[in-house]
Design a protein around this nucleic acid. Structure first.
Lengths: 215, 215
DNA sequence: TGCTTTCCATACCGAGCGGTATATAGTCCC
DNA sequence: GGGACTATATACCGCTCGGTATGGAAAGCA
C-alpha cells in the first residue's frame, strides 16, 4: 500500500480554492459533501464507514468522490480537519479561562454540549478512531492520536501555569491532572456511544467539577 | 440473518461438558482454543477480528471452529464469558470493600492491573465492543452494554449502601458517582488503547483516589 | 461546429469477508 | 473386519469491500 503523503501534507478544509473555468463544472458542493462525509465517519468510525454509505450520504458517485477527495483515507483526514475546526472550536476558548477549574469547566461543558446534541452523532470522533481502528488503519489511528497529544500538551502547559499561579494545590501534578481530565472526557465519549441519557452525562460533569482540586 | 438464540441461551464457558465416545476424537482443546480466540477479539474487537486470524491463533481450521463453537458471534459470546470469569474476577472482590473509597480503589487498581499487564491486550474488551461495533454487530454491542449495565447497577447499589453508612458526603448522588467512576475507568481503557505508559495510568488512578469524596 | 477539458454514470476489478460442501481420516461398537 | 459416527482438510460459495476503466455529457475556446 502506497502512502498518501502528498494528500496529507496540504491539509486544507476547503477542497478546491479556485474553480477551474474549463470543462464541465462539478454538480455538487465539496464543502457540503465533506460535511455529510464527516457525519458518516463520526457515526461509524473510519473502518465502519463504507464507500457505499459515504457516497449515498454525500449524494455523489464514487468516481466523483475519488476525483475530488483522493481516496477514503484522504477524505477522512479532510473530514477530521473540518471536525476540529467546527466541533472542537471550544478547545481554544477553554484554554483561555482564568483558572484551572475554569479550564476544566469549559472543556467538560463543551464536550457535554457536543455529545448531548441532537443533530450530530454522539461520542468523540477521536475516541472512536483511537479505539476502533485496529486492522489496517493504524496510520489513521496514529494521526488522530498525534492530534489528541497536541491538545493534551496544551492542557498540560495551561495546568503548569495554573499551578504557578496558585490555582492548584501543591500535591497535584499537572501531568496527572491532565491525564485525569482527558480520561473523564474520554469516558464521557464511551458513555455517549453507549447511549447514556443527557441528564446522566450532565451529572457526570457536575460531579467532576465538584471534586475538582483548587480554583 | 438468523438469530442464534439457542447458542446464546446456554452460555457456558466449558464448551462440551461430556466428550462423546463415538467417532474421531477432536485434536485440540476447546478451552485453549477459546483462550486464544479471546486474545484476538480483545486485541482487535469483534468486527476487526477475522476468521482467518482467529483460526490461525486457535490452531484449528474453519470447519473445526464452526463445528465446535457455532459461528463467529457464538464464539465471541463464549470468549466474553471467559473474559468476565477470568479477567473481571476483581469486580466481585471490589464490591466487598468496607468503604465506598475502598470499592473505588479496588476497581481502579484492578482495571489498572488488567490494562498495564504485558501478556494481555490493553484496553477493556467492553469499551472496544461498545465503541467499535457499528455496522452489523449491534447485537454484540447490546449484549456487552447489558453486561456493563448489570455491573454498573451493582456499583450503584453498593454506593447507595455506602451513603446510608456515611461513607459519602450528603451532597453526593450515588448514581452520579457511579457514572463518574465508570467514566474514569472507561477513559483509562481509551488511554490504554492509545498506548499510554503504565506510569501515567497509575498516576491517573492515584489522582482519582486523591480527589475521591468521603472515606 | 469542432475540439479540448473536465465531470458523471455504469459497470467492473481483485481481494478479503463469513460460512459451507465434500471427501477423507480416525475411533468405537458389533 | 465392517459399518456407524465424528473430526479434519481442501476447496469453494455468495457477498461486500476499496478502488477503477470506460464511454458519454456538459462546459469553454476556436
Amino acid at each position: 500500500m502506497e502512502s498518501i503523503e502528498d494528500s496529507i501534507d496540504d491539509r486544507v478544509v476547503t477542497i478546491e480554492p479556485v474553480a477551474p473555468t474549463r470543462g464541465r463544472p462539478r454538480q455538487f458542493c465539496p464543502d457540503e459533501a465533506l460535511t455529510a462525509a464527516l457525519q458518516v465517519f463520526w457515526a461509524r468510525g473510519y473502518e465502519g464507514a463504507s464507500m457505499a454509505e459515504l457516497t449515498e450520504a454525500m449524494g455523489i458517485t464514487k468516481p466523483s468522490l475519488y476525483a475530488c477527495f483522493g481516496n477514503k483515507e484522504a477524505l477522512f483526514y479532510k473530514a477530521l480537519d473540518l471536525y476540529e475546526r467546527d466541533k472542537l472550536a471550544y478547545v481554544q476558548k477553554a484554554l483561555m479561562a482564568p483558572t484551572a477549574k475554569g479550564v476544566a469547566e469549559q472543556f467538560l461543558r463543551g464536550a457535554l454540549a457536543l455529545q448531548t446534541g441532537t443533530t450530530d452523532p454522539r461520542c468523540c470522533l477521536g475516541v472512536i478512531s483511537t479505539v476502533a481502528c485496529t486492522t489496517q488503519a493504524d496510520s489513521i489511528k496514529h494521526d488522530v492520536m498525534a492530534r489528541q497529544e497536541s491538545s493534551s500538551r496544551a492542557i498540560l502547559e495551561r495546568f503548569e501555569r495554573a499551578k504557578a499561579e496558585g490555582d492548584l494545590p501543591e500535591d497535584i501534578e499537572p501531568k496527572a491532572l491532565q491525564c485525569y481530565l482527558s480520561a473523564v472526557m474520554q469516558g464521557m465519549g464511551v458513555q455517549a456511544s453507549a447511549g447514556a441519557c443527557p441528564e446522566q452525562m450532565a451529572q457526570l460533569v457536575e460531579t467532576t467539577l465538584a471534586l475538582w482540586p483548587g480554583r
